[in-house]
Amino acid sequence: MKIDLEVSEPIDFGSGDHQHLVRKAIDDKNQEKSHRSYGTSPSSGPQKTRGNPRSKSGEPSDNYVVQISDETTPERSTSLSSPFADTSIRRAFIVKVFLLLSVQLLITGAIISVFLFCKALRVWVVKNPWFTYAILPAFFVVFIVLACCGKLRRQVPANYILLGLFTVLQGLLLGTVSVFYNAEEVLWATAATALVTLSLTLFALQTKWDFTLLNGMLFVLLFVLIIYGILLIFIRSYWLHLLYAGLGTIVFSLYLVMDVQLMVGGRHHHSDLDPEEYVFAALNIYMDIINLFLFILQLIGLGR
């Protein structure tokens, strides 16, 4: 027996909404047959048919016709609506981040070189500490604007101007720090930072471990590191300073791996960056490298 059933609305087969429609169609068919049997004469006997009894040319065939809307599941629709579903968009995002990061590191290295190899400037910075204290407020203001004002860091050319200003201020601060170290120590720290950064970046791109899950734990470690650093202002201990430098190197090494995986995205659990957040991604990786450089420089200075 075949029954015509046409459904004009989408049906959720998982919830059993289709069953009452099928029962209704069967009941209508049975009522129609009962009306037919009442309408025929009782004297009419059984009729013999030849061939296939199911194929009756006089009777219309009863078919089930169910129209099901092709709807995607929530997970699938979410993945398809992601801006990074297209690999070309993700590739362009990564290229922008690495280009900005390269320019930032070149500008920072050039500024540090001026402070490092210009003896007159080194002497002037040591004799005038107000220069460092004057840079710090401007540095933190630009940093807070870039970190908190999401709309502003997506607007061109305001995002590039702010990022360039931040890079120059960061370079000046690093220059004032480098005058208290020998040129050899700064160069060794720069080489070590470059080697560690390259190794960790390759590791983050190749490993199957998802470091983005460590975001909360790394934030706690960073908070502990800040409190530890404040205490060391009042405590003069070689081993405590050495432990602080080692802990800072480990924390920002993990942050570098995590931020690279956030930028690359893909199979990682947390990869919710927007394609327009290339400035924010470059800023995060840049700060990881700078902090890694500072802690490695401190380790080399304590070791010598």
Results as ranks from 00 to 15, higher is better:
His269Asp: 11
Pro275Lys: 12
Ile233Tyr: 08
Gln261Met: 05
His268Ala: 09
Leu240Lys: 11
Tyr238Gly: 00
Leu242Met: 13
Phe166Asn: 11
Val179Tyr: 06
Ala194Asn: 12
Leu247Gln: 12
Leu214Trp: 10
His241Thr: 12
Trp209Met: 09
Thr212Trp: 07
His270Pro: 00
Phe219Lys: 08
Leu232Gln: 08
Val251Lys: 01
Leu173Ala: 09
Trp188Cys: 06
Gly175Trp: 01
Ile230Ala: 14
Leu222Ile: 01
Ile226Arg: 10
Val257Phe: 00
Leu205Gly: 06
Leu225Ala: 10
Gly248Ser: 03
Arg236Leu: 14
Leu205Thr: 10
Ala191Tyr: 08
Ser271Pro: 06
Val264Lys: 06
Phe219Asn: 14
Leu247Tyr: 12
Leu247Trp: 15
His270Asp: 06
Phe166Cys: 09
Ile250Lys: 04
Val186Glu: 01
Leu200Met: 06
Ile227Arg: 08
Glu276Asp: 13
Leu231Val: 10
Ile233Pro: 02
Leu242Phe: 06
Leu231Cys: 08
Phe219Ser: 13
Tyr278Asn: 13
Tyr244Lys: 09
Leu218Glu: 03
Pro275Met: 07
Pro275Gly: 09
Glu277Tyr: 05
Val257Met: 03
Tyr244Ala: 09
Pro275Glu: 04
Gly265Arg: 00
Trp239Gly: 08
Gly248Trp: 01
Leu202Arg: 15
Tyr228Met: 12
Val168Cys: 15
Phe252Leu: 10
His241Tyr: 11
Gly265Val: 01
Phe203Asp: 04
His241Gly: 14
Val196Glu: 06
Leu247His: 05
Ile235Val: 15
Leu195Asn: 01
Phe211His: 04
Val264Glu: 10
Gln206Phe: 08
Gly266Val: 06
Thr190Trp: 14
Ile230Leu: 15
Glu184Ala: 11
Arg236Ser: 15
Leu198Ala: 14
Thr207Glu: 01
Thr207Arg: 02
Leu200Asp: 05
Ala183Ile: 07
Ile226Glu: 02
Ala194Trp: 04
Glu276Phe: 04
Asp272Ala: 02
Thr212Gln: 11
Gln206Thr: 15
Val179Leu: 07
Gly216Cys: 05
Met217Phe: 13
Leu256Asn: 09
His270Ala: 11
Val260Thr: 14
Leu262Val: 13
Thr167Asn: 06
Gln206Cys: 05
Gly248Gln: 04
Val251Asp: 15
Val196Arg: 12
Phe166Leu: 13
Leu218Thr: 00
Phe219Ala: 15
Asp274Ile: 06
Leu174Trp: 10
Leu221Cys: 13
Thr212Glu: 02
Thr201Asp: 03
Val220Thr: 14
Phe211Ile: 03
Gly229Cys: 12
Tyr181Glu: 03
Ile233Met: 06
Gly175Glu: 07
Tyr238His: 13
Leu232Cys: 06
Thr193Ser: 13
Ala183Trp: 11
Leu187Glu: 10
Thr249Asn: 07
Leu247Pro: 02
